[in-house]
Simulated assay, not measured.
Amino acid sequence: MQLVVARIGRAHGIKGEVTVEVRTDEPELRLGPGAVLATDPASAGPLTIETGRVHSGRLLLRFAGVHDRTGAEALRNTLLIADVDPDERPEDDDEYYDHQLIDLDVVTKDGDEVGRITEISHLPTQDLFVVERPDGSEVYVPFVSEIVTEIDLDEQRAVIDPPPGLIDDRAARDEVADGHSASARDAAAEDAGEEA
């Protein structure tokens, strides 16, 4: 299985280093010196990582054969792709690779269907499941243990215990909205009656 693990950004300096937007939870494993990565576009690679370092909070990489700014700039916006064993799992039992979570069915602890995970959004403070509802709408579920109570890869499902308001039932919202509209109509009719 192939996974996008980074996107190459701007050139840094004049010796072929590039900034990298990391798209993996394990950059030390996927983006370490000696790693050979496929690319998108394919014509840019494969690329072998020669050196890597962190500078001002950003990962900088240098690739074999790229030793000047011109070569580094030519790689800008190239995606770096790693081959990953689909059965490989992180060392920590409470961690998962994105590809393991995509397409899991999401249900509440009571068994109510919520939808299907279509994307994992990695934010600075926490990760979010982007869940597509059966009606095509999306809901965002924080990937925290208080809300996501179980990940069952064998059953291909994620069980959640959402706090009030996280998973709003559209029908309930519409009913409330209709109720407010009806109340407003009734009030207007009463006002009209009093004026007559």
Rank of each mutant, 00 (worst) to 15 (best):
T108W: 01
V66D: 11
Y140F: 13
H122S: 09
V84I: 14
L153M: 10
L75E: 09
V84D: 05
G16F: 04
E138M: 09
G65A: 09
G111F: 09
D103K: 14
D154Y: 04
V107A: 06
Y96I: 00
T51N: 13
L101I: 10
R23D: 04
V130I: 14
G34W: 07
V139P: 02
D25L: 12
T48Q: 15
D93C: 06
A38G: 09
H55M: 12
Q126G: 00
E21T: 03
V130H: 03
N77Y: 14
L61T: 05
E91Y: 10
F129W: 06
G52T: 14
I117D: 02
H67I: 09
V144I: 15
R53I: 00
E138F: 15
E155R: 15
D87K: 09
R23Y: 02
E50C: 01
L29N: 08
N77D: 15
E17S: 04
G71P: 10
E119F: 07
D83L: 11
G32K: 11
S137K: 11
E91V: 11
D40K: 11
G52F: 04
E50W: 05
D127L: 07
Q126R: 15
D152Y: 05
S56L: 14
T19S: 13
T24V: 05
T118E: 15
E50L: 14
E17H: 06
E150K: 15
E95Y: 07
E91C: 06
L101W: 02
G45P: 05
E138Y: 13
V18G: 06
P124E: 08
S43H: 14
I81C: 07
H55Y: 14
V66Q: 11
D94P: 01
A35S: 14
T39Y: 03
L79I: 01
V131D: 03
A74F: 10
D94V: 07
V84S: 03
Y97E: 12
L80A: 05
L59E: 03
L80G: 01
E113M: 13
S145N: 02
S121Y: 06
S56M: 12
P46L: 04
